[in-house]
Design a binder for these strands. Structure first.
Lengths: 403, 403
DNA sequence: CGCAGACTTGAATCCTCGA
DNA sequence: TTCGAGGATTCAAGTCTGC
């Protein structure tokens, strides 16, 4: 492993890393420690850039430690000749050595290797985002599937301001593709902050096509002479959408191709921990300086929206026990077509048949399933109301009791 | 090969096909015949649906005969359980036998086989569009690349009205992906009607993300009881964009997974010839009836926009010979910074240096290249005009002479 | 200082004919 | 097949310059 060229604090540990000075609040740190089977968070070089080859460095990280992976691997562009604009100015192409592969087969080998290494250190409920273009994304997608990852979505980043097609020989290449995948088919508990995204999208669920401008202006890292430091710096808005969607504050985000450090910058701002691996010391150094300047947003700004799924479960029986509803009361549906009697054991009776609020609701309608909480209504103070209102009351007193 | 169930005319030939009664005008038919090395168009079952297995049937078609391929192969959807909406109604999912594959490896074998068969019958300058979702498109893309196809674009069909994600566990799956590929790296002469597309897009080049509604309403084929005939009928607008972009009237379009026949319907309307292969007689029969009702648009509506590249080349010397411009006249650029003298041989002189209008234009500006036709202007009747106006005059008299 | 217009730039598999 | 030359081709943002 190489070390960074300059200006790195905290480089005394065996693994030499760049500490960027962010520290998660104690409460969220504990979440990171996770179950006893995963190594304690202290063993991880949190919020650091590891300068070195991604395969070597990933292998040194403890298994089952990463919550979210964002990977922006080389695209394997195959450019033959220089391209000039209609005004004869030259396009500054990506012709760096790190994007050169001898063949598709070489690229596939490389992809298999880093995906395998990443998979080992992902927690069972972690997910991964990989970004690419048509040059490489089909290779990446196939290999993800072959390795047992379970694709959740492919996502299209529509560029608001793409480079046009100067020769008029193709459609404007105006998007890049992200693949979002869980560690395996069985991983059903992955994080997806559905309500949070929906709340920020005019109460409409977020689609698989995202519109963002490319990274320009003040956000784009430049050297003293005004040249861009990294040819493919990603916009922070893209990474923010990803982290808000698929991680919580305090989670650990890995970026095996750290580059200019957009992942680290956004992670710090959103109160996530990160680990970045970057081969080029000059990129790592620029990223380190960039991240040092970032400040974490106030906790209120990054708090998660509690999802319905994460609310404590309440049994209808407990409402009866708590006296919120009395045995013998009648429940009806909104259209007053069906009526049931509440039993002392928390079941309801439809004629001679008894069962849960859900089962009986389904039976009454002849449907395979029914949400009894929203289907059944009770009568109080001259009006009908869904029994879900009683559940909300029960939850409120639970919260009070916890304080 | 099986034959269609019912109502098919023209089924007397050895290859039993459904003739749909469209006939290209003679002038465009001749284009189809192509060079002597390719079989005459008469040998092809033009504008027919071949009922049978696509691998068997494609192998019987003559090599180098297809201009454009549109393929909508099985998506290999991996649906585990029935999906119901929040109101408990059941989503009518794709669970047909033709979409069942035992493994990715089986799907890959199938994909390699049909792509190989299709590639053999494509003309050297033909292109192919394949549509898919994240379940299969990465397999298809990798195999296209492995077989030597040259990807020109990946294109995103953004659905204006996608099915929402009912469970709130993923992003709304709001797009499908198309891959557009040429037969090989060397195939530089593929058709792409850049000017036509641009003209229909507010004079702005068309991007790789396309917005279309999914196929609903009157366009959606339904049986007597109102059930949709095919689960994945594609919208005609999508096929129209594809054919307008990558084929000319009279071209031959192949669809190896014909389904409900959208490709045939649009081909007929736009004056293209088609061949469809479909395994299910019921789909083929519905498609045949559908296409029979379509009428071809008037020729004016489907005429190609002539591109500048396809105009006959005119040498500047021929303008001098024709007396459109006199030796000794002075040409200047728009900003009057440079001036050259026209020579009798059709070259121009900048001081002591002589050369073509392009070379001298480039030299004057210190640029690697220059379009002399638009750069240089001549003086006539009190005003300056680009010499391109003289070329237009020469072309006009050429056209007159040809009539 | 504001505004208008000129100039710059971005993950790009980006021409075609004839000798 | 290779080579040389004709000549066709760009959109949205951002920055810079001059008035």
């Amino acid at each position: 492993m190489r070390t960074l060229n300059a200006g790195l604090a905290g480089a005394k540990s065996r693994i030499k890393v760049a500490r960027t000075g962010i520290s998660a609040p104690r409460s969220v740190r504990q979440r990171l420690a996770g179950p006893a089977s995963t190594p304690p968070a202290a063993a991880l070089p949190l919020n650091s850039i590891i300068v070195g080859d991604c395969l070597d460095e990933l292998a040194r990280l403890p298994p089952n430690s990463i919550d979210l992976v964002f990977a922006d691997p080389p695209y394997n562009l195959q450019l033959e000749a220089a391209l000039s604009r209609p005004d004869q100015s030259l396009v500054d192409a990506v012709d760096d050595d790190w994007d050169k592969f001898a063949s598709f087969s070489d690229y596939d080998d490389f992809t298999r290797a880093w995906l395998d290494a990443v998979r080992k250190i992902m927690k069972p409920d972690a997910t991964i985002f990989v970004i690419g273009s048509y040059h490489n994304i089909f290779r990446v997608g196939s290999i993800l599937q072959d390795q047992g990852f379970w694709i959740l979505n492919d996502i299209v980043w529509r560029k608001a301001n793409p480079m046009p097609n100067f020769r008029g020989r193709r459609f404007t290449n105006a998007h890049e593709t992200l693949i979002w995948a869980a560690k395996g088919v069985g991983a059903k508990t992955y994080r997806f902050n559905y309500e949070l995204l929906k709340a920020g999208n005019e109460d409409c669920q977020v689609r698989s096509d995202w519109l963002f401008p490319i990274c320009t202006g003040a956000e784009r890292l430049k050297d003293a002479s005004g040249r861009k430091i990294h040819p493919t710096q990603k916009p922070e808005a893209l990474l923010a959408r990803i982290m808000l969607a698929a991680s919580n504050p305090g989670d650990l985000v890995l970026d095996p191709f750290f580059g200019s450090g957009t992942t680290g910058a956004v992670a710090k701002r959103l109160g996530r921990n990160f680990i970045g691996v970057e081969r080029e010391p000059s990129y790592a150094s620029a990223a380190q300086a960039r991240i040092a300047k970032i400040e974490m947003l106030p906790h209120e700004a990054i708090a998660t929206v509690p999802s319905k799924r994460s609310e404590p479960r309440i049994a209808f029986a407990s409402l009866v026990e708590a006296g919120l509803i009395q045995p013998g009361e009648t429940l009806v549906d909104e259209k007053r077509r069906h009526a049931v009697i509440v039993r002392a054991d928390g079941a309801v009776s439809l004629g001679a048949i008894a069962g849960s609020i859900h089962k009986i609701g389904a039976l009454a309608q002849g449907l395979p399933a029914c949400n009894g909480w929203t289907f059944w209504q009770f009568f109080r103070d001259g009006k009908y109301e869904p029994i879900d209102a009683l559940r909300a009351k029960a939850r409120a007193s639970l919260r009070e009791a916890a304080e």
